[in-house]
Design a protein around this nucleic acid. Sequence first.
DNA 1: CGGGATCTTGAGGATGCTCAACGCTAGTGG
DNA 2: CCACTAGCGTTGAGCATCCTCAAGATCCCG
Lengths: 245, 245
Amino acid sequence: MGLGEPKKRPASDTAEQTSPCAACAVRGMAFCGVLDDHEMPQLLSILQTVTVDPHGPIIDEGEPADYLFNVTQGSVKLYKLLPDGRRQITGFLFEGDFLGIAMNERYAYSAEAVGQVSLCRFSRRKLERLLDEFPKLEKRLLGMASNELVQAQDQILLLGRKTAQEKIVSFLLNLSDRAVKRAALASPISLPMGRADIADYLGLTTETVSRTFTNLKRDGYIKLLQGGKVELPNREELQELAEGS
Amino acid sequence: MGLGEPKKRPASDTAEQTSPCAACAVRGMAFCGVLDDHEMPQLLSILQTVTVDPHGPIIDEGEPADYLFNVTQGSVKLYKLLPDGRRQITGFLFEGDFLGIAMNERYAYSAEAVGQVSLCRFSRRKLERLLDEFPKLEKRLLGMASNELVQAQDQILLLGRKTAQEKIVSFLLNLSDRAVKRAALASPISLPMGRADIADYLGLTTETVSRTFTNLKRDGYIKLLQGGKVELPNREELQELAEGS
DNA sequence: CGGGATCTTGAGGATGCTCAACGCTAGTGG
DNA sequence: CCACTAGCGTTGAGCATCCTCAAGATCCCG
């Protein structure tokens, strides 16, 4: 696992010593949002901030699941591989998303930075002890797990029964919805990942992704802007395209 | 939702009055297994046993998620529909499986009995109150949610990147593994669901499922027995078929 | 024994894949 | 400053897997 070894920065070696969390932009959206200010120090004591370069590994499928993460900046892709190299991306994470609910003793998938990424890293062992102390943290995690399961089922429906065009449009709408949840704009959304990543997420090839974008553009459903941004002029129209109705 | 209205049987109207749980065959595997004997009465007080006829509905996608279930007998299919009728089965449940982790305020999918099914039914509201009282119950549910997420990712990999034959073989091996967990045999496994259900679970058509079974049979990888049972003579061989290695 | 449902088999076709070439952009070094 | 290259995205032509449509076989329950 050569390139991109995470650069660890203990929470206690900078001016942020007292609390990187106090200034944290994603605290409200993340699972730590349920803790009050006076409870934060205990979380802080088991947390390290980490940055990873583009394409750098974060976790590897099959390794002991010793750490959990919270994405504070950038985007992350999760994926599984078949022995012959076929790849399935199981999800993308953005600011505020949690990495590591879906695991037992070992990581069930690998994770890699899409662009430059910053994360909070928790020792799993220590976090589990904290859960005993703060039941509301555990409740929050259970709620997040529920949400992720619902998302996973949507993805299963998409992969099993939708056409290439429906897959692409569903994907764009999903990114748009999540952007709104992060208090970003619903319409010019940014695609930090490449065509190959989109293909491996939707069970397609890069060529099919590219062709489908071209068609959607030609028919006026989307506009491709500078810097990998996409404009969605008419969400309701797209909503229907996404479900074939 | 006409046919198959669940037949409710309050826990207090039969000889099992004191405890249907005491004699419950699946208690060890189910989430209630974490409760001690002296804690069971509280669970019992919020529980009803229910039976559903073949093809009878259990829950409907989009309805308020007022009840959670534990399957005690038979098999259940979970599915989502697209507006034009395309169907994706998101999972099958067997004895001991829990129904209802993946939900928020409303059910994220529909559930239907495959054969004759028996279930324990819990009021969600009351169960949530019980969770506050028994943190170990909550911990257990979080663990189960983790497991389900791992399963969901496997299914995503299957749907996105596996061939028809790999899908079928993976499915058979999965059923076999789960049979073992229920203390059943690994090899002649039973397929309580029809070809159409298998197809909608694997993102295929019934014809493709049928043809693939025929091919696997011809090549000696499986044997189709009486009563919808399937023999898997060589699991290791199948394991390789399932991953294309 | 009959009949409906389910399963199987066949022939033809469409969606998305493979293989290949070309264009665009950004970073690099002369 | 600009040619060069490497990576990524786009486009095209042919093809394979799986789907569609249709007919026949089998099973199960009355």
